[in-house]
Simulated scan of single mutants.
Amino acid sequence: MNIRDIFDQKKLVFSFEVFPPKNTSPIKNIYKALNELVKLEPDFISVTYGAGGSTVNNKTTEISSLIKNIYGIESLAHLTCISSTREQISDITERLRLEDVENILALRGDDNGTSCGDFKYANELISYVKGNKNFNIIAACYPEGHIENRDVKLEIDNIERKIECGVTSFISQLFLDNNTYYEFLEEVYKRNIKTKIQAGIMPVINAKQMKRITELCGATIPLKFKKIMEMYENNPEALTQAGIAYATDQIIDLSSSRVDGIHLYTMNNPYVAKNISKNIGKIINSINEVQNV
């Protein structure tokens, strides 16, 4: 099913993200995680496109196919364009097409300053894929601006450009302050943009993870969350529960504010996903039941 159709059917879309195991880890690890995650019946599961060459790329295609064709849940395959040639992108998209994977999350990817590929920006990848294969294209957006340019108005310019190239919905970068997200949406709506946007939520359950988030995407760390990290950073079990509770509170608030969807960055952790799903399951069902009345 095209993910665009899922948005037409549901008031609030709820999805997961997983990532392929590193080359040093057995791929069976992701199978174990998926066996638990699919029981939670998300609307779709996205599979990240890791760095590291064709082996990882094959895992992304393989896992996306598994989710769609074996587990019966719609999959969303990530595709990055930095350092990629048109020939490489055509090869990957053809493999996805043969596996009946209909949805692609088109991303630029991290620029290390040495890119020599055929694409520089995500909108170029979007146009190329849209023009050569019949895929539903989803893109990323950044509520606090991209880490390379924090201007939110420029970010909304990029959203408009991606829509013009064929994007049907967006998934946001993670954020820890809902007010930041609401301010972003307000600016989006001022432009009369009606394309669906899912809120990206990552349950942060360890201090190392918080540091990595800050470095990679520049997400603002609210004082409330800083206090949680400081209080429980030396107690992993307590910190896990606090991280789950914080993410749950975020999702309940977002759901009550009628956002289009929630995209949960699971970090391949079924325990966290199961607890959050249990906490919010009745809320999401209630919202979607109203849609179907």
Results as ranks from 00 to 15, higher is better:
E215R: 06
G200Y: 03
G200Q: 02
L185K: 13
I193V: 11
K211M: 07
I213S: 01
I171W: 04
M210V: 08
L154M: 04
L174E: 05
C165F: 00
I193A: 06
I163N: 06
S169E: 07
Y182P: 03
K162F: 05
R191Q: 11
Y181N: 04
M202Y: 04
L185S: 09
E183S: 15
V204D: 06
K194W: 02
M202H: 02
C217K: 03
L185H: 07
F170P: 13
I193K: 08
I213Q: 03
V152M: 08
A207N: 05
I171A: 10
E148F: 05
E148N: 13
N178M: 13
R212S: 10
D151V: 02
E164H: 00
R150C: 02
N149C: 15
E215N: 11
R191F: 06
N179C: 03
I163Y: 10
L216V: 10
C217V: 14
I213Y: 02
E164A: 02
K208G: 12
N158M: 02
K190T: 12
I159V: 14
T214G: 10
E186V: 03
V204G: 09
T195C: 05
F175L: 15
L154P: 00
I156M: 04
K194P: 00
I171V: 15
I159E: 01
R161G: 00
E183G: 12
M202K: 12
Y182M: 06
I171M: 11
I197H: 08
E164F: 00
I171S: 12
T195H: 02
I205F: 15
D157H: 05
L174W: 05
V188N: 09
I205A: 06
K208L: 08
Q198E: 14
T180L: 12
A207I: 07
E148H: 05
E183L: 15
E155P: 10
K162N: 09
R212I: 13
G218Y: 07
Y182H: 05
L216T: 10
T180E: 10
N149L: 09
I205M: 14
P203W: 10
G200S: 04
E160I: 06
F184R: 03
K190G: 10
V188C: 11
E164V: 00
